[in-house]
Design a binder for these strands. Structure first.
Length: 711
RNA sequence: GGACACUUAGCUCAGUUGGCUAGAGCGUCUCAUUUACACUGAGAAGGUCGGGGGUUCAAGUCCCUCAGUGUCCACCA
């Protein structure tokens, strides 16, 4: 008997399905539509276990809906993943001795597109391995013209609706990625640091001073004020005086502010509006000047005098040493706190003032909150989580200082554009292409495009619409939108899911999807995330190679309960896969028994009187009912468990054993049950079921077989 | 500091609206010895469902509380 199930075989089967167009949606179909939107994986990311599970879930639902006679669209796509892709490419270029500066924007982009193609090719193969029945010819890439048009439309609408603004604000800046990032793109890392208590002398006073606590003495060069908590017992008396910046010797104002915590440190705070979000706010209220001691590359500026040009860490030490020499340090404490780092490169994020584009999110969030109830969430509590977030929405900083992405479709007249301020009256245009009409200077070639590109999520957030050709009123948009099913990891609920909800509602008054499924995150046995740096990852392709696609899928469904994280390891996965490999073997042997060892004189009809026949048919019907019900609730872990139990412990262990004594009579019942089993299992174990389906003498693919119903 | 989860057998997890002696897989132990299938079959051991309190005829499930774990959010210098 066959004991192994080679992926070669699965590969061939998959190609034949694809060739026959079994995964192709047909907008002209008479059947009702059912649409599933595949989350576009990052162009640079590898296929990990979480993806495999996500795809296995998507695929099972797509296959079931096909069998239930829906016209199914499972639309695949890839995200250009701005920051991440650009970082990867730049590392490769660096090894070749090349750089952005050396290549220039145009050459760099040429290179980027070439690299994109390379990555794309290897990528595609990894996906098909899990058996995903996606409509590949319709695949969308987030930088292709269709999406570009949608992104432009969105930008233009926001501009016309007065929801866009540009200006210099304090943003979170990643010096390594060289761009602004959003709060939700940051992580926090516990770091051991020093808390320096520093004395700022009071002007015109012999010995009086205010002590503040800071972890960042290097930013003192950019201090422009001292804020103390309300009614500060010790420092209140200095309120009408000025303090002296111990490093620059500038005199800076002292004032009260309720945002200063009396309990923390000394209850006094140095205000550095250029390098801290809170200081920025406080500084703005007190009209403090904004100075920069650190630039966008993470080095100290001229302001830092003899420390200029240093990296932050070095500058910090030297600044501390200098203060020490000046006798300005009261004490130094060890201090562990959470330092914000860039989610992607783990570099410490530097708050800086930068010129960026923003979207006013308040009206979009309000609409989102109002309509989110129309979406069914699995698990249900995500509705509250997303609502809470929208209720506390911040404006969205959408510009990134990158080259890989949708370039901001704004053109400035070179001669008349003041660098820092953009308002509607300034000479500028919103246009995808270079404007043909001349600007004030009278020459069309004076138009220059904004240097920045849009945040990746600005296009990903439009994914439910852009993939279907919006803003055109396409047949596909009409038919498949809103999407019936969307799936995601909880991780990107704000970055992606909340944005899709707000943007779809804003542009079309329609929710983007009817059923939103959040799968849990797979972790290692200690509960840690899988990550490259920990080296604890499990390669799904390796599991597939060892145990086959079907077994790997079945193992993954056991972890697919909505929103539940799962702990696992290579050996736990191997155990589970092995179990389902055995299950596949069991099924194969059942089929052999029923089909190949069929007796000559077998019955053509089911014996209505036989108790065993009646029993197994009753069990079958109850299984059909349970499985169908569980699938409708997207509880695939229950559906597969039910099937496993029926096939192995009821059909094989009991019914088949008993049938041996009355084999010819039982034959038609055996065949009927096997027929239903294969159809019920097909969404979960597509390859084996197709193979056995053919063995049963069926001519059409099981993909097209109707889903069993209780009759 | 807020929010949301989770805690069930040695391990990894199920357990739908409260309802028979709490389930699965792996692991452990006993038996069967070539069967459609050893990638097998029959059986066993193993749980006071995190602790405590409450509601109920009935609680793993609902409510309160305590403890532990995890995730997300928040400007604590």
């Amino acid at each position: 008997m066959d004991k192994t199930h080679h992926t070669d075989y699965e590969g061939k089967l998959y190609s034949s399905w694809e060739k026959e167009g079994l995964f192709t949606a047909n907008p002209n179909s008479e059947k009702p539509p059912y649409s599933l939107l595949m989350p576009p994986p990052n162009l640079t990311g590898e296929l990990h276990l979480g993806h495999a599970m996500q795809h296995a879930i998507l695929d099972a639902i797509a296959r079931i809906k096909r069998m239930q006679e829906f016209d199914v669209l499972l639309l695949p796509g890839v995200d250009h993943a701005g920051i991440q892709f650009e970082g990867t490419l730049d590392r490769i270029l660096a090894k070749e001795g090349l750089s952005k500066q050396k290549l220039g924007r145009e050459k760099w982009l040429e290179r980027a597109w070439k690299f994109k193609e390379e990555v794309y090719q290897s990528f595609h193969k990894a996906w098909t391995v899990i058996g995903l029945s996606a409509d590949w010819p319709k695949e969308v890439f987030t930088l292709e013209p269709k999406v570009e048009k949608a992104v432009f439309e969105q930008f233009k609408r926001f501009w016309d609706q007065d929801l866009l603004y540009k200006g210099a604000y304090i943003v979170q800046w990643c010096p390594k990625c060289g761009t602004a990032i959003e709060d939700i793109e940051m992580e926090y890392e516990e770091r051991k640091q020093k808390l320096y208590y520093i004395n700022y002398p009071i002007q015109d006073s012999e010995s009086a001073y205010i002590t503040i606590a800071t972890t960042r003495p290097e930013t003192i060069y950019a201090d422009t004020g001292i804020a103390i908590s309300l009614n500060h017992p010790r420092f209140k008396k200095y309120l009408d005086k000025k303090a002296i910046n111990p490093l620059t010797k500038d005199s800076i104002p002292i004032f009260e502010d309720k945002r200063v915590e009396p309990e923390f440190g000394t209850g006094a705070l140095k205000i550095t509006p250029g390098h801290d979000p809170l200081d920025y706010e406080i500084g703005k209220n007190h009209n403090l000047p904004i100075l920069h001691a650190i630039d966008k590359t993470g080095r100290t500026t001229e302001l830092a005098q003899e420390l200029a040009g240093m990296k932050i860490e070095g500058a910090r030490e030297l600044a501390a040493k200098k203060l020490e020499e000046l006798g300005a340090i009261e004490k130094i404490e060890d201090y562990t706190h959470a330092v914000p780092v860039c989610e992607r490169c783990k570099t410490t994020v530097e708050p800086l003032i930068s010129e960026e584009w923003f979207v006013k999110m308040q009206p979009l969030a309000e609409k989102g909150i109002l309509n989110i109830g129309q979406i069914n969430f699995y698990p249900t509590n995500y509705k509250k989580i997303l609502t809470d977030w929208m209720e506390n929405i911040h404006d969205w900083s959408i510009s990134r200082s990158l080259w890989w992405g949708h370039r901001i479709p704004v053109w400035y007249c070179q001669k008349c554009n003041p660098q820092n301020k953009v308002g509607k009256n300034k000479e500028m245009l919103i246009s995808l292409e270079k404007p043909e009409k001349p600007c004030k200077t009278g020459h069309s070639h004076y138009w220059i495009q904004d240097e920045q590109v849009l945040d990746t999520w600005f296009s990903s957030g439009l994914w439910p619409l852009s993939t279907l050709g919006w803003p055109e009123k396409t047949k596909e948009l009409e038919r498949y939108f809103p999407w019936d099913f969307e799936i995601s990891a909880g991780e990107i609920k704000y970055l992606w899911i909340a944005r899709m909800i707000m943007l779809s509602l804003w542009h079309t008054d329609t929710i983007p999807f009817k059923h939103m499924f959040f799968h849990g995150m797979l972790r290692d046995l200690q509960g840690r995330k899988f990550s490259k740096s920990l080296g604890n990852g499990i390669d799904p392709q390796e599991l597939i190679k060892t145990w086959g696609t079907d077994a790997t899928r079945m193992a993954l469904y056991t972890y697919s309960a909505p929103g539940r994280d799962g702990r696992t390891s290579k050996s736990v996965m191997d155990n589970r896969c092995k179990n389902f490999r055995n299950f596949g073997n069991k099924l194969r042997n059942i089929a052999k028994f029923v089909i190949e060892l069929k007796p000559e004189n077998s019955s053509k009809k089911i014996s209505v009187k036989n108790k065993d026949d009646q029993w197994i048919l009753k069990e079958l019907h109850s299984t059909i009912e349970q499985v169908t019900k569980n699938i409708e609730k997207f509880e695939l872990h229950l559906a597969t468990e039910e099937l496993y139990n029926f096939v192995w412990h009821k059909f094989a262990d009991i019914y088949i054993e008993k049938s041996k004594s009355r084999r010819p009579e039982a034959q038609s019942c055996l065949t009927l049950v096997l027929d239903s089993i294969l159809r019920l299992l097909h969404p979960f174990m597509p390859f084996l079921t197709e193979e056995l389906w053919t063995k049963m003498g069926k001519e059409e693919s099981i993909t097209l077989a109707p889903w069993p119903t209780k009759t």
